[in-house]
Amino acid sequence: MLNRILVALVGIPILVTVLLKGGFLLLLFVNFVILVGLFEFYKMAEIGGKKPDVNLGYIAGLAIPNLLYFSKADNTEIILMPIVLLVVALIGKKVLQNKVENSSRDIGITLLGVVYVSGLFSHLLLMNYLPKGGHWLLTIQVLVWVCDSFAYFVGMGIGRKIFKNGFSAISPKKSVEGSIGGIVFTMAAIYLINNYFKIFSAETPNFVVLLFGLLISLIAQIGDLGESMFKREFKIKDSGKILGEHGGILDRFDSMLFVVPTVYYLLKFFN
């Protein structure tokens, strides 16, 4: 418990500063999360009997955020270049090694790591290019915390009392009641945040604000359950130990991996 409190006391102010300030500081943060996240994902995969090409995965994974930042362009097509080149390199390497057995499995798990960790998390840099980008990043993180916290509290209070079958195959402690609680409080939170801090334009109707809250909560929970799905498949409890009792980087940012890209494209569409 003490470790959790200390990590939160130190980590939260740093995270808030990084998200609001953006720029090169955000790039360093994104690179760190991607590097550690890829390490955790590939280590989990190896424990699960897979054999990712770790070195090529690291190169492609770190190329994505740096190309996005130094090109200084709000252009998602930049993400595709390292991924395309990675596919060519992975298949080419297997051909030159004259290997057949488990080739698609090894190529697939390497590629999944890059797309899942780097491709998704690099959208923090794209979000930073948007108007109020830093405020949106902080808002998303707050909403993810709200969703996670209230899903937990509601689930602990009334979980499995109404809906007997939750998400037991993926995460035994997750319940439908908790999921609904997370949705309701996330929608309430984004409504209040917009009322006080005006993160949406003045012309945005309330139903759109609430729709954002609904989608953010749903996607956050999918991200959380998605990472749990991988951990259960690979038969491990936490993705890592870098944050002590908080687990690994992927344990902390599994929801952000999914929510930031979703909100980025929603904002591009509605604006």
Score class of each variant (00 low, 15 high):
residue 51 K to T: 10
residue 51 K to V: 02
residue 52 P to E: 05
residue 52 P to K: 07
residue 54 V to L: 13
residue 54 V to A: 11
residue 54 V to P: 00
residue 55 N to L: 13
residue 55 N to I: 13
residue 55 N to P: 03
residue 56 L to R: 13
residue 56 L to P: 08
residue 57 G to A: 05
residue 57 G to R: 00
residue 57 G to S: 07
residue 57 G to T: 09
residue 57 G to H: 06
residue 58 Y to V: 04
residue 58 Y to F: 15
residue 58 Y to A: 06
residue 58 Y to H: 09
residue 58 Y to T: 01
residue 59 I to A: 14
residue 59 I to T: 03
residue 59 I to G: 00
residue 59 I to H: 01
residue 60 A to M: 03
residue 60 A to D: 08
residue 60 A to L: 01
residue 60 A to G: 10
residue 60 A to T: 01
residue 61 G to K: 11
residue 61 G to D: 02
residue 61 G to E: 04
residue 62 L to P: 08
residue 62 L to E: 01
residue 62 L to D: 10
residue 62 L to Q: 00
residue 62 L to M: 09
residue 63 A to L: 05
residue 64 I to L: 07
residue 64 I to D: 00
residue 65 P to Q: 09
residue 65 P to S: 12
residue 65 P to L: 10
residue 66 N to R: 10
residue 66 N to C: 11
residue 66 N to K: 10
residue 67 L to H: 07
residue 67 L to Y: 07
residue 67 L to Q: 05
residue 68 L to W: 02
residue 68 L to N: 06
residue 68 L to V: 02
residue 69 Y to C: 02
residue 71 S to P: 01
residue 71 S to W: 04
residue 71 S to N: 10
residue 71 S to V: 08
residue 71 S to R: 07
residue 71 S to G: 01
residue 71 S to L: 10
residue 72 K to W: 06
residue 72 K to V: 03
residue 72 K to A: 11
residue 72 K to N: 13
residue 73 A to G: 09
residue 73 A to W: 03
residue 73 A to F: 01
residue 73 A to I: 02
residue 73 A to C: 10
residue 74 D to Q: 06
residue 74 D to A: 00
residue 74 D to N: 12
residue 75 N to C: 07
residue 75 N to V: 01
residue 76 T to V: 15
residue 76 T to L: 15
residue 77 E to K: 12
residue 77 E to Y: 15
residue 77 E to H: 12
residue 77 E to V: 11
residue 78 I to D: 03
residue 78 I to M: 07
residue 79 I to V: 06
residue 79 I to M: 09
residue 80 L to K: 03
residue 81 M to D: 06
residue 81 M to R: 12
residue 81 M to F: 15
residue 82 P to E: 11
residue 82 P to N: 11
residue 82 P to W: 08
residue 82 P to F: 10
residue 83 I to M: 10
residue 83 I to G: 03
residue 83 I to D: 05
residue 83 I to P: 10
residue 83 I to Q: 07
residue 84 V to W: 09
residue 84 V to M: 14
residue 84 V to F: 13
residue 84 V to T: 11
residue 85 L to Y: 11
residue 85 L to A: 12
residue 85 L to P: 06
residue 85 L to C: 12
residue 85 L to G: 11
residue 85 L to M: 15
residue 85 L to E: 12
residue 86 L to K: 04
residue 86 L to E: 06
residue 86 L to V: 00
residue 86 L to Y: 08
residue 86 L to A: 04
residue 87 V to A: 13
residue 87 V to M: 13
residue 87 V to K: 10
residue 87 V to G: 07
residue 88 V to D: 00
residue 89 A to C: 02
residue 90 L to K: 01
residue 90 L to C: 08
residue 91 I to H: 08
residue 91 I to S: 03
residue 92 G to T: 10
residue 93 K to D: 14
residue 93 K to L: 15
residue 94 K to V: 01
residue 94 K to H: 14
residue 94 K to Y: 05
residue 94 K to M: 13
residue 95 V to D: 04
residue 95 V to M: 14
residue 96 L to I: 14
residue 96 L to A: 15
residue 97 Q to D: 14
residue 97 Q to P: 06
residue 98 N to F: 14
residue 98 N to L: 13
residue 98 N to S: 13
residue 98 N to Y: 13
residue 99 K to A: 14
residue 101 E to P: 08
residue 101 E to A: 03
residue 101 E to R: 01
residue 102 N to Y: 05
residue 102 N to E: 15
residue 102 N to I: 09
residue 102 N to T: 05
